[in-house]
Design a protein around this nucleic acid. Structure first.
Length: 423
DNA sequence: TCTGGGGTCCTAGGACCC
DNA sequence: TCTGGGGTCCTAGGACCC
């Protein structure tokens, strides 16, 4: 059996830890740039506010005093997530952290008749020690554990823990689960499933295997087996990320080439720093930018360009240099840009770099790496959001300048870099 | 006025090989 | 005039996740 621990309304719950007066009230947390709703309390869900609702459409409810909105505070959420995960990790032999608010627990070591009590204790411990409410679903596979945790969250009677430990319970749960609530069925697949007459998870599991294979390929097969109780979603053991992306929407649209170039440089510098943090290097640097797709009256342009480095790199100079090279090939005058970003991919461990035969300056590379090291050391004093040392190609001031966040809570537990200041 | 950010995996099709 | 078959690898784009 496997257990999925899922934090309830995670970002909202984090805000409530430091604002207990908001318990029982309608609360939402907004995306970067105060763009749209990304986390909702049960009360705001009940008001009909949907995930992804643009903030400007519900601002009047805030003004009327019926809803509290927060800008996102990722340093806070990251820190509280770490605290929750460390409690879970201490409780079981093996844990897979799946996202900021979810983890799979391998509970093989626990006697079957004690699993429920074990999980309820865990729910209570996390609530008491960190202040975050969680739900736990226990089932033979990850896909089923997801469904179980959904029931744990929805029905009060479960007291936070739903056990799917018999086949009768599994079938009952599948029957009650709409197909679009199944892990792996998204926006596109859901209407297709309906058109094939599959409206619940149970319908899907009753289709023959070759039908599933023909319609959905390997993903469908995996889903089918998991729902029927055969585990086949493996753990991703890769420590290193395969791509790293830094992108932002801007508070206002940007047309000026120089201004946009500065933003792209910042994004590239942040990617380089993230690479160094996990001792990785990248061959490919991709720059992309978007005009405002909601402004149908304006010209639209969504270009991207990828620059391949001869040798994988992670120095600020090389990554920024490549990003700017890409930028210059795609930037066009006359468009108003709303968003831009940099992705680094084709990532390899820094200590396993492949050399090239000709025309490569080893000493230059060493200087660049050394310079990045010094920049990191100096910037760790100022916080990486406001680097003391930067390339001339980068902006002055704070990385978040020009990004809207009018409703941000305090950094209650950490500094800007997520360094813990309160235990 | 105002609409997020960061990932992974799969697939189809083209390029290329013998 | 007539122009195969089988394979691999890479890439872009789509779909999904939180």
């Amino acid at each position: 059996m496997i257990a999925l621990v899922d934090c309830n309304n995670f970002f909202v719950s984090c805000e409530r830890v430091f604002r207990p007066d908001l318990e029982g009230k309608a609360v939402v947390v907004l995306s970067n740039n105060d763009g749209c709703v990304v986390s909702r309390s049960n009360e705001s869900k009940a008001m009909g506010i949907k995930m992804g609702t643009p903030f400007f459409k519900i601002r009047h409810i805030v003004d009327e005093g019926r809803l509290t909105a927060f800008s996102s505070n990722y340093a806070l959420y990251g820190d509280l997530s770490g605290r929750v995960m460390s409690i879970l990790a201490d409780a079981v032999p093996h844990i897979e952290i799946y996202s900021i608010d979810e983890a799979f627990l391998h509970i093989d070591g626990i006697q079957e008749d004690q699993v429920q009590e074990f999980c309820r204790n865990l729910v209570a411990k996390v609530r008491q020690w960190v202040g975050i409410p969680v739900s736990i679903g226990v089932a033979p596979t990850k896909t089923l554990a997801k469904i179980a945790s959904h029931f744990a969250k929805t029905y009060k009677g479960y007291k936070g823990v739903c056990m799917m430990d018999t086949d009768a319970k599994r079938l009952k749960a599948l029957e009650l689960t709409p197909i679009d609530d199944v892990w792996g069925v998204g926006r596109r697949l859901a209407p297709q499933m309906l058109s094939w007459g599959v409206s619940t998870a149970l319908d899907f599991t009753q289709r023959p295997l070759d039908w599933v294979q023909a319609k959905l390929g390997v993903n469908g097969l995996r889903m089918w087996r998991e729902l029927n109780g055969t585990p086949c979603v493996e753990e991703d053991c890769d420590e290193r990320r395969k791509s790293i992306c830094t992108s932002r929407s801007f508070a206002d649209m940007i047309e000026d080439e120089r201004e946009l170039e500065l933003r792209v440089s910042d994004f590239a510098a942040m990617c380089a720093k993230k690479l160094r943090e996990e001792e990785s290097s990248a061959y490919d640097v991709t720059v992309f930018m978007y005009t405002n797709r909601f402004r149908e009256d304006l010209g639209q342009y969504f270009p991207s360009a990828t620059v391949r480095l001869p040798i994988a790199a992670n120095s600020t100079q090389e990554i920024v240099g490549a990003a700017l090279k890409g930028f210059r090939t795609i930037y066009k005058h006359g468009y108003q840009y709303k968003k831009a970003g940099v992705t680094v991919s084709n990532i390899v461990p820094s200590d396993q770099l492949q050399g090239v035969l000709f025309g490569y300056d080893q000493s230059l590379r060493q200087k660049q790496d050394r310079l990045s090291e010094v920049m990191d050391a100096v910037n760790s004093v100022s916080g990486s959001d406001r680097p003391l040392l930067r390339l001339a190609a980068q902006r002055e001031g704070h990385y978040a300048d020009g990004i809207r966040c009018d409703h941000k809570s305090s950094l209650y537990t950490t500094d800007l870099d997520g360094i813990i200041k309160v235990r």
